[in-house]
Design a protein around this nucleic acid. Structure first.
Lengths: 359, 359
DNA sequence: TTGAAAGCGCTAACAT
DNA sequence: ATGTTAGCGCTTTCAA
């Protein structure tokens, strides 16, 4: 193994100078820097992560705390984040919270958090007061929630705008009784489900179509099974519907399965729109119309906010909330015009722009 | 942060004694051990992983080198392995090889491997000679291949047996022209595709049904897209078929999509069987009959073999190959008898037993 | 059975 | 602009 001191000897400088060069710190003459860089190259020096961590009191791990790992959405997110984190010398450890308040609080407990340098939390059951009370022991970026007063660094998708896009599309295509699968009747929390439910209502209001509360069904989870069961529930309750806005693509896959079991044809009999634009959506039967929430942009924003806090050591200061623009991808599960492949043409877009600050 | 030395002071012993106790090393008087353990408890001491690693020259990372991350199978595998690895103080870093020989060789290069304490490799393009030539710089467990002469520790699913189960089921249900999607005509490598192709042939031989080579189509990848394109290819080539054995569930989802696009009904017109028993299979339209390769047992076997090498520091010595038993899960994409839910009844089983050593 | 010392590779803080 | 010192928390080696 090649050490810093080996490079230092080779380049005829001190270890500190090598350290400074390797870490891109200022205050090194250009000629010296070149000499060091050449020595690094020649010897094939690679920094030792463990030593760095020991010295810096860091672990190199970022925690990704999500409701569950069985969902395609979080699997894709974990992949994207891992990739980006590794470019910065971190690795991502994914932990499941079980989508319960207890699970989420437990994951945020100081001794659990101690294992990470920073965490990304996708809170589904915690509200602002919970978060505030948790007094996080580590830099944290929140995911998928509504903007908070700048108190917590925060990356969200445009849940409301995206949902509006989806529901407006259904209304435009003639749907009048749109089931909201996984939705909430009361907007108690500012979680994903509530926000998308707000979008659902707002689109109805805009179109002057009344909402039948019976059409709003909760889901035990936003998994395939959750979507399946919710649609079955609706059917058993004898609630009629001519479209469904399903809160996630995962759940939409279950919903399509349930509709098939019920002998209802999509989109002729029931139109369906999902949310997330998972890779699977394009291969479902029928191909799923869905909301693309700007997944890549969100992953980048998360890492950016987290690294900023990690660098400053400052939690909160300079924190920003970022919003990712949502876009509708129209496929075969609705009767609207099919989107052009590979172009922007035909894709409706939510009105919030990427990187727009909401503070 | 509580240090070893804090505990030592509290217990009135040296740091070494504490270290010995904490690591369960012998040569400590029982009374001393108790005293130390109490101090550890009282102070809430947690070992510092970075220091341990610095001292021991380890990184705490296990590499999982897989063809791609977009596939549900590897996403699920990564989840299972992460979970198990973390119980032993390791974390899993997933890297993609791109399913090419170059990509796999690059991932195995000494400087890449240096980042990990051990790796799990799912080789798709490398053969035994490549592996031998690579002279792995780290403990490594291979995944999904055929048994080797005990040279490489190795966990595999019963690819041949599982494929035979699938194809026999189709033959039993009356299929006579079974397309092999993602298969190989020549068995050059001992990779997953070749082995499952062997099972396909063997089942035909056993049943006395000839194989039409035209029915064997390769896939660009074992993704949804790969399955879709392969079926389309078959159709364009005007090859007739009354069933398809698709080499992965991911690809099977694409195949179902393609058959739907072609207006062919499943299972009436074409029966389909997949392989992997991904969570998605149960929700596809129609529900996919597939081979359950014993995923959990495999993950446990992988970790067990890797930890054994890590402990001994011995690569190869004491290495074993393990085989996981495959089972057929019959659903609606075939005309066979539907499996009973929640029981073993009805599920055919491959003849190799879990944990069976092949050396 | 227990302890003391040395040092893993790196970097913050303080010289020069 | 560069160098020196000290020490992060742990474990290997050797001595008591």
């Amino acid at each position: 193994m090649v050490r810093l001191s080996d490079v230092a000897r080779e380049a005829g400088v001190s270890t500190m100078t090598v350290s400074n060069v390797v870490n891109g710190r200022p205050g090194v003459r250009d000629e010296t820097r070149q000499r060091v860089l050449q020595a690094v190259e020649r010897l094939g020096y690679r920094p030792n992560a463990a030593a760095r961590r020991l010295r810096g009191g860091r672990s190199g791990a970022l925690g990704l705390l999500v409701p569950g790992l069985d969902s395609a959405y979080y699997a894709h997110l974990a992949g994207r984040l891992s990739h980006l984190a590794e470019e910065h010398g971190y690795h991502v450890v994914t932990e499941r919270t079980g989508a319960t308040r207890e699970g989420e609080l437990a994951a945020l407990a100081p001794d659990r958090l101690a294992a990470y340098d920073g965490v990304v939390l996708s809170p589904v059951a915690l509200d602002v007061d919970d978060l505030r009370a948790a007094r996080l022991a580590r830099p944290c970026v929140l995911l998928g929630e509504r903007p908070l007063p700048g108190e917590f660094p925060h990356v969200m998708m445009d849940n409301i705008g995206g949902a509006m896009l989806a529901v407006r599309h259904l209304l435009d295509a003639g749907a009048r009784r749109i089931a909201l699968i996984g939705g909430r009747r009361e907007v108690a929390f500012t979680d994903m489900a509530s926000l998308r439910s707000v979008g659902y209502r707002r689109a109805h209001t805009d179109a002057g179509v009344p909402v039948d509360e019976d059409l709003i069904v909760g889901a035990r989870s936003f998994s395939m099974r959750g979507g399946y069961e919710a649609v079955m529930q609706l059917h058993e309750d004898g609630i009629d519907f001519d479209a469904a806005f399903v809160l996630t693509d995962d759940a939409a896959m279950g919903a399509l399965r349930a509709l098939a079991d019920l002998g209802r044809s999509v989109p002729d009999d029931v139109q369906v729109v999902g949310f997330d634009n998972d890779a699977e959506a394009e291969f479902m039967i029928p191909r799923l119309t869905t909301v693309e929430p700007g997944n890549d942009a969100m992953a980048r924003a998360i890492i950016r906010l987290l690294l900023a806090q990690l660098r400053d050591g400052s939690r909160g200061s300079g924190s920003r909330n970022e919003v990712s623009e949502a876009r509708l991808v129209v496929r075969d599960s609705t009767r609207g015009a099919r989107e052009q492949d590979g172009g922007d043409a035909g894709g409706a877009t939510s009105h919030l722009a990427v990187g727009q600050s909401l503070r």
